[in-house]
């Protein structure tokens, strides 16, 4: 028997989930749609963004929403030299933990910068909104250095 040809085929498996947000995350996403950032106050007074449904210490239901700023400070970051297909940017960028003004807990998002050396811990950043907001995390296209 001669050597058979090698058979190769692209195959995509898709799970087309629609997730229910629940009232708390729904409120956060609704805020994004209106180009506002909303956190929630925990039992110890900390403001958590994105808001959590239950208190991290007491497990009690949380409900006190707090508006926070669209600017903040980089707490820590990782530079992505070679963005992959699923990443939010095609150019090199930073994943960063950003503590928004008025929040006590940092939130992860991407930061656009020309080079790694421009990004520093403590740097001030500002949200860049998408042209069209739909109520999704990508309504913030990225953060940019102030």
């Amino acid at each position: 028997m001669s050597q058979p040809e090698i058979l190769n085929q692209a195959f995509e498996l898709g799970y087309t989930y629609t997730r229910s947000t629940g009232p708390v995350v729904g409120r956060f996403l609704t805020g994004l749609k209106n180009r506002k950032l909303v956190g929630i106050k925990a039992s110890d007074g900390r403001v958590i963004v994105p808001p959590m449904e239950y208190d991290p210490d007491t497990a009690e239901e949380l409900s006190e929403f707090v508006d926070v700023g669209e600017q903040g400070e980089i707490v820590t970051f990782a530079w992505v030299k070679e963005p992959r297909e699923a990443h939010p940017m095609n150019e090199p960028f930073a994943w960063a933990m950003i503590k928004l003004d008025g929040a006590d807990v940092p939130m992860i998002h991407c930061v656009a910068a020309k080079s790694e050396s421009d990004v520093t811990t403590g740097a001030r950043v500002r949200a860049v909104w998408a042209d069209e907001t739909i109520g999704f995390m990508t309504d913030i296209r990225c953060f940019e250095l102030v």
């Binding site: 058979p4 692209a10 195959f11 799970y15 989930y17």
Partner: peptide, 27 residues
């Protein structure tokens, strides 16, 4: 604002494979 409250999000997962048939499947 409450009227247009976001209640769900599209969260698809796509797994992209390149399937190569082994010798038995090739036969």
């Amino acid at each position: 604002e409450e009227q247009e409250m976001i209640t769900k999000v599209e969260a698809p997962v796509y797994l992209k494979y390149n399937f190569t048939a082994g010798s038995a499947p090739t036969r």
